[in-house]
Design a protein around this nucleic acid. Sequence first.
DNA 1: ACCGTACATCTTGTTCAACAATCCTTCAAT
DNA 2: ATTGAAGGATTGTTGAACAAGATGTACGGT
Lengths: 238, 238
Amino acid sequence: MPAGITEQMASALARDRSGLVHASTADRVTELLRTHIMEGLFPPGTRLSEEVIGQALGVSRNTLREAFRLLCHERLAVHQMNRGIFVPVLSRADVTDIYALRRLVEGGAARMAGSAAMTARLAVRAAVDAAETAAAAGRWFEVRTADLLFHQAVAALAGSPRVDELMRRALAELRLIFHAMADPEQFHAPYVARNRVIAESIMLGDGEAAEKELLAYLADAERQLLAVYQVPAPDSGP
Amino acid sequence: MPAGITEQMASALARDRSGLVHASTADRVTELLRTHIMEGLFPPGTRLSEEVIGQALGVSRNTLREAFRLLCHERLAVHQMNRGIFVPVLSRADVTDIYALRRLVEGGAARMAGSAAMTARLAVRAAVDAAETAAAAGRWFEVRTADLLFHQAVAALAGSPRVDELMRRALAELRLIFHAMADPEQFHAPYVARNRVIAESIMLGDGEAAEKELLAYLADAERQLLAVYQVPAPDSGP
DNA sequence: ACCGTACATCTTGTTCAACAATCCTTCAAT
DNA sequence: ATTGAAGGATTGTTGAACAAGATGTACGGT
């Protein structure tokens, strides 16, 4: 008879682990605030009062402060000593910096298309499919989500969990900027077709071409973003 | 007579601002624990008891927990629900992943050597100088520090604050692995000369050559590290 | 010996209340 | 208009308290 739990059985169980890991209150609060900030519920510059939010969510100030710390650490909030937590107001320099990071990471990942896992490449194409479907139906906020997912998938070609997480954070920051813009159609519509081209290069394993097209994409997107993005408030008030 | 504070005067003062910004207790505790973990004071797998550390540092549990959260977020500690905070035991997969990230980021940054700021390039060379001086004197731990600083400087060629921070975190994690190794001389000695070669390519603005040499460097270092690095404790069980 | 249970114990997760330090607002005075 | 001083509000930090989960140990059954 079988001796015991095999390596295979154990790893099958390990995949379920994330489903039953009960997160702490602080983690759940962090997750909740993270999505709310990313979705644009709180406009940039808003102060996140400990008392108000703590009372609204029914958690203590201490627990809330743990959540705030984490959000600050991933730049989805900024901490001013003795003044509180604020939704960040990203500067034009931040836009430039985020795109520099994206060029480095996404460009480098795209270049590895030839040696990337097939599942990773298929994920890239799947993201483009979703974007096209949403665009055809005129659901432009969905197009935005699919677009971000596309770039996440491109970064995932590197096959590195740390790169994935890095990219997730960078794109979350980028969402803050997108919310300060007009309508998503004007900005995202032209890029769906370009994503398709990039995806096909990746599917073919032509990393050089994919990187080249991607870098051009990012350069154009950055330019377009900077053209319309004006920082809401300078820095120090009136 | 002069009308008032000019733009220039104000920016001069703004540079001093960082000198008088008083960090919170939680921030100071974080910084302290961060360096201690990086320096290897707590061996991997150590549990960081809230009570013991809180009492030792003279801070309350709540404040300490804020610090722990931050450390977990930058992977210098791991949190197990209802069990506490532990110094991470990095796996061989972690080593591979960190080097994948380094290849992507440092390689991409090195490729930009031609268009990087001159001060950034000089910083690269300065780090190599420091490493050579320390190596000649036989101060191998100083060589290690200089080596890490060298790679930090290479990443800084990208001219992106976010890339700088990303690299700082990755190299901090790497320090955890280095501490599990034998003596630093054997590992770091051969790389000082290679750093010099890379630095000279960067000074000349030859990004292609710098990237190529750097990638070879990183591949060798990863291989050498994996050859001797055995995970201290499997994962579960005595 | 092996397994499961029950219990005692320890540590963490979370809340609450309190106080000091700091910032913001208001208002008066020059 | 600028400065100074009081007052209120918010954050920074602490200490104590309790619930919930994890660990360790002893006991009984097989």
